[in-house]
Protein backbone atom coordinates (compact mmCIF):
# COMPACT_ATOMS: atom_id res chain seq x y z
CA UNK A 1 0.00 0.00 0.00
CA UNK A 2 1.26 3.44 -0.88
CA UNK A 3 -0.04 6.98 -0.49
CA UNK A 4 -3.68 7.27 -1.36
CA UNK A 5 -3.56 7.67 -5.14
CA UNK A 6 -6.51 10.04 -5.33
CA UNK A 7 -4.78 12.34 -2.92
CA UNK A 8 -3.80 15.17 -5.21
CA UNK A 9 -4.39 18.87 -4.67
CA UNK A 10 -7.67 18.61 -6.55
CA UNK A 11 -8.87 15.35 -5.09
CA UNK A 12 -12.58 15.64 -4.42
CA UNK A 13 -15.37 17.98 -5.29
CA UNK A 14 -15.30 21.05 -3.13
CA UNK A 15 -12.01 20.29 -1.45
CA UNK A 16 -10.07 22.97 -3.26
CA UNK A 17 -12.85 25.51 -2.95
CA UNK A 18 -13.32 25.03 0.79
CA UNK A 19 -9.64 24.62 1.60
CA UNK A 20 -9.31 28.14 2.98
CA UNK A 21 -12.54 27.89 4.93
CA UNK A 22 -11.36 24.65 6.53
CA UNK A 23 -8.08 26.22 7.52
CA UNK A 24 -9.94 29.00 9.38
CA UNK A 25 -12.05 26.40 11.13
CA UNK A 26 -8.90 24.49 12.06
CA UNK A 27 -7.35 27.60 13.61
CA UNK A 28 -10.54 28.40 15.53
CA UNK A 29 -10.74 24.82 16.74
CA UNK A 30 -7.14 24.84 17.97
CA UNK A 31 -7.74 28.18 19.68
CA UNK A 32 -10.86 26.91 21.48
CA UNK A 33 -9.15 23.71 22.56
CA UNK A 34 -6.09 25.64 23.74
CA UNK A 35 -8.19 28.04 25.79
CA UNK A 36 -10.21 25.20 27.28
CA UNK A 37 -7.04 23.33 28.26
CA UNK A 38 -5.60 26.48 29.79
CA UNK A 39 -8.72 27.16 31.80
CA UNK A 40 -8.93 23.59 33.08
CA UNK A 41 -5.32 23.54 34.21
CA UNK A 42 -5.91 26.89 35.90
CA UNK A 43 -9.09 25.63 37.58
CA UNK A 44 -7.58 22.37 38.80
CA UNK A 45 -4.04 23.11 39.81
CA UNK A 46 -2.91 26.46 41.25
CA UNK A 47 -3.89 26.27 44.91
CA UNK A 48 -6.06 23.21 44.72
CA UNK A 49 -3.15 20.87 44.15
CA UNK A 50 -3.78 19.18 47.46
CA UNK A 51 -7.48 19.79 47.08
CA UNK A 52 -8.26 19.77 50.82
CA UNK A 53 -6.47 20.14 54.14
CA UNK A 54 -6.65 18.08 57.30
CA UNK A 55 -8.24 19.36 60.50
CA UNK A 56 -4.82 19.97 62.04
CA UNK A 57 -3.56 21.85 59.00
CA UNK A 58 -6.67 24.02 59.07
CA UNK A 59 -6.29 24.79 62.78
CA UNK A 60 -2.65 25.78 62.31
CA UNK A 61 -3.25 27.98 59.27
CA UNK A 62 -4.64 31.25 60.57
CA UNK A 63 -5.16 32.74 57.14
CA UNK A 64 -7.52 29.85 56.31
CA UNK A 65 -9.80 30.93 59.16
CA UNK A 66 -10.52 34.47 57.98
CA UNK A 67 -13.80 33.53 56.35
CA UNK A 68 -12.50 32.50 52.93
CA UNK A 69 -13.88 29.37 51.25
CA UNK A 70 -11.72 26.33 52.05
CA UNK A 71 -12.00 22.54 52.09
CA UNK A 72 -11.28 20.58 55.25
CA UNK A 73 -11.31 16.81 55.56
CA UNK A 74 -11.58 14.56 58.58
CA UNK A 75 -13.45 11.76 60.28
CA UNK A 76 -16.79 12.24 62.00
CA UNK A 77 -16.29 12.16 65.78
CA UNK A 78 -18.43 9.38 67.28
CA UNK A 79 -21.53 10.70 68.97
CA UNK A 80 -20.86 14.32 68.00
CA UNK A 81 -23.71 14.50 65.50
CA UNK A 82 -26.67 16.65 66.47
CA UNK A 83 -29.87 17.49 64.71
CA UNK A 84 -32.81 19.34 66.17
CA UNK A 85 -36.01 17.37 65.80
CA UNK A 86 -37.82 17.83 62.46
CA UNK A 87 -35.09 20.09 61.21
CA UNK A 88 -32.32 19.92 58.65
CA UNK A 89 -29.96 22.05 60.74
CA UNK A 90 -27.13 19.79 61.77
CA UNK A 91 -23.90 20.12 63.71
CA UNK A 92 -21.02 17.69 64.19
CA UNK A 93 -17.30 17.49 64.84
CA UNK A 94 -14.48 16.35 62.57
CA UNK A 95 -11.14 14.95 63.69
CA UNK A 96 -8.04 13.73 61.84
CA UNK A 97 -7.77 10.00 61.41
CA UNK A 98 -5.42 8.34 63.89
CA UNK A 99 -5.71 11.17 66.39
CA UNK A 100 -7.09 10.12 69.78
CA UNK A 101 -10.23 11.68 71.20
CA UNK A 102 -8.09 14.30 72.88
CA UNK A 103 -6.85 15.58 69.52
CA UNK A 104 -7.93 18.83 68.00
CA UNK A 105 -11.34 18.71 66.41
CA UNK A 106 -13.42 21.06 64.34
CA UNK A 107 -17.01 21.98 65.14
CA UNK A 108 -19.02 22.31 61.96
CA UNK A 109 -22.58 23.11 60.98
CA UNK A 110 -24.53 22.22 57.88
CA UNK A 111 -28.05 22.88 56.65
CA UNK A 112 -29.46 20.33 54.23
CA UNK A 113 -29.77 16.67 53.40
CA UNK A 114 -26.68 14.63 54.21
CA UNK A 115 -24.94 12.37 51.67
CA UNK A 116 -25.62 8.61 51.79
CA UNK A 117 -22.28 7.61 53.19
CA UNK A 118 -21.98 10.38 55.79
CA UNK A 119 -22.32 8.05 58.78
CA UNK A 120 -20.26 5.18 57.41
CA UNK A 121 -17.21 4.65 59.67
CA UNK A 122 -14.97 4.13 56.60
CA UNK A 123 -15.84 7.46 55.01
CA UNK A 124 -13.72 10.53 55.17
CA UNK A 125 -15.78 13.70 55.16
CA UNK A 126 -14.74 16.75 53.17
CA UNK A 127 -16.40 20.04 54.02
CA UNK A 128 -16.41 23.06 51.77
CA UNK A 129 -17.24 26.30 53.46
CA UNK A 130 -15.82 28.99 55.68
CA UNK A 131 -14.91 29.50 59.30
CA UNK A 132 -17.60 31.70 60.77
CA UNK A 133 -17.85 33.70 63.96
CA UNK A 134 -18.27 31.61 67.05
CA UNK A 135 -15.53 29.28 65.79
CA UNK A 136 -17.95 27.12 63.85
CA UNK A 137 -17.11 25.91 60.36
CA UNK A 138 -20.16 26.66 58.24
CA UNK A 139 -20.21 24.04 55.51
CA UNK A 140 -22.16 24.67 52.33
CA UNK A 141 -21.12 21.46 50.57
CA UNK A 142 -20.34 18.05 52.01
CA UNK A 143 -18.34 15.55 49.99
CA UNK A 144 -17.52 11.99 50.99
CA UNK A 145 -14.24 10.27 50.20
CA UNK A 146 -14.12 6.50 50.41
CA UNK A 147 -10.98 4.43 50.89
CA UNK A 148 -9.50 2.84 47.71
CA UNK A 149 -10.25 -0.50 49.28
CA UNK A 150 -13.00 -2.75 48.10
CA UNK A 151 -14.14 -5.51 50.43
CA UNK A 152 -17.00 -7.94 50.32
CA UNK A 153 -19.94 -7.19 52.57
CA UNK A 154 -20.21 -10.85 53.63
CA UNK A 155 -16.58 -10.94 54.80
CA UNK A 156 -17.08 -7.73 56.73
CA UNK A 157 -20.18 -9.07 58.48
CA UNK A 158 -18.40 -12.35 59.31
CA UNK A 159 -15.48 -10.44 60.78
CA UNK A 160 -17.80 -8.33 62.92
CA UNK A 161 -19.68 -11.32 64.28
CA UNK A 162 -16.60 -13.36 65.14
Amino acid sequence: MEEKEYDSEENLEGDVATGGNNRTRLVILLLVVGLALGYMVYAAFPDNALYFMSVNEFMEKEEAQDGRIVRVSGKLVDGSFNRAENSINTSFRLIDEGTGLGGENLLASYVGVLPDLFFNPHSEIILQGSYGPGQVFEADTILVKCPSKYRSLEDELQQQSS
Binding site: R83, E85, N86, I88, V113, L114, P115, D116, L117, F118, F119, N120
Partner: peptide
Amino acid sequence: MPDLIALQIELPSSNL
Protein backbone atom coordinates in the same frame (compact mmCIF):
# COMPACT_ATOMS: atom_id res chain seq x y z
CA MET B 1 -37.95 15.67 54.98
CA PRO B 2 -37.30 13.83 58.28
CA ASP B 3 -38.29 10.55 56.59
CA LEU B 4 -35.73 11.17 53.87
CA ILE B 5 -33.02 11.68 56.47
CA ALA B 6 -34.05 8.55 58.36
CA LEU B 7 -33.80 6.55 55.14
CA GLN B 8 -30.28 7.72 54.51
CA ILE B 9 -28.92 6.42 57.78
CA GLU B 10 -29.53 2.87 56.56
CA LEU B 11 -27.21 0.96 54.23
CA PRO B 12 -26.79 2.66 50.83
CA SER B 13 -29.07 0.26 48.99
CA SER B 14 -31.16 3.08 47.55
CA ASN B 15 -28.51 3.52 44.85
CA LEU B 16 -29.90 0.97 42.41
